[in-house]
Amino acid sequence: MTAKSETVLWIAQRASAAVLALCVAVHLVTIIYAVQGGLSAAEILGRTRGSAAWFGFYSVFVFAVTVHAPIGLRSVLGEWLGWRGGSRDLALLLFAAAILLMGMRAVVSVLA
């Protein structure tokens, strides 16, 4: 890894953390608000499906997690397990792809 790419990873993790701080807050408030009246799963899906705004919001959420989590895990693997180098980065790319796929699958199921 060059100094430049390490720096890009560093700022990507911090920028995604800033996005996640907002997303998590909105997500939690929305959950608490939505269940106040005792909504069923079917009623929730009835309200979420087809909403372009929520689809956009949760897509951003999933994308931020996809960026943030693997970079953090990269440090954990290096510092705790001593796993560094290309094999670690390849494994983390697969991990990122899995997060993106699972996250977007959930977003499409609930919001599309």
Binding site: M1, A3, E6, T7
Partner: peptide
């Protein structure tokens, strides 16, 4: 110097 202190062995860790 900035190049030498960036990255995994440097300030970003």
């Amino acid at each position: 110097r900035l190049r030498a202190v960036a990255g995994d062995a440097g300030c970003h860790s």
